[in-house]
Amino acid sequence: MNINKYKVFDVLRWTISYFLIAIVVLFAIFPLYYIVLTSFSKLSSISALTLSSLIPNLSNMTLSAYQYVLSSQFALWLGNSLLLAVGTLAVAVTVAFVSGVALARLNISGKKALIVFLYILTFFPFTAIVIPLYLSFSSLGLINNYIGLIMIYAAGTAIFGAYMSKIFIDSIPKEYEEAAMVDGQSRFKSFFTILFRIAKPVVIFVALLAFIGAYTDYAVINVFVTQGSLYTLMLGLYHVSSIGGGASAVNLNVFSAFSILMGLPIIAFYVVFQKYLTQMYTMSGTK
């Protein structure tokens, strides 16, 4: 009887679960579907889509927007964006994880005050610090330079990531790394490696945050890069899709096609790493 009750409850639970998820997925992807349709449209404005055109009609579709995008310097911009995003990811993840471990496991005097102080500094919005930051970067020769940009992107993600790593490492019993050390691994290495492996979903999350932040940024790079050869996709997007001239709007179909091509590397990132984000935690290897 008890088992029966659970069975009914299980069916109900799964039905509700999938129903809710279906609604959420629709909400999440509808605007993106809208972008996809617009990218194949012959018209360049929002009047291109009506309710009836939400059902794709091949005869009304054209690849001209994609051809236009690919005839631009898309490959150069893509390379630049990936370089920036991967650089940011590497710096942010390393700094965040090392700091997170130090905050969680090491005894550091004055730690509390330091943490609060660093945290409050990050409250200032980018818009409030952009001009002074520009001036200091300018005197250091960091304008039109990816190293400066990577530092800006990494700083925000790293501090957030450090606190996140710290919180999660705190929830991991200390016995794990101590057990590993008894196994005879190199002490220092094992200390970080074990924690890294246990905290991997969080580390991957921080990596994703860093990658997306740098890859999709417009506000920062628009100020710090003016040289065409250093343009990223976001700057290229603005460049390609706006027709220029004071009174004109962006070409929405070109804009959409560009943003879809631009989204492919992020989707690739997901496909590669989503198993870590959704992976069930296992104890294997730590015993």
Partner: peptide, 26 residues
């Protein structure tokens, strides 16, 4: 491993980064 001010070394990168990117401009 858990004691000593030597441990500040691990926090140095993040402190440097934050001070440089945030403190001066603020």
């Amino acid at each position: 491993l858990k004691s000593g001010s030597i441990n500040y070394i691990y926090l140095l990168p993040i402190i440097a980064l934050i001070l440089f990117i945030f403190l001066y401009p603020i």
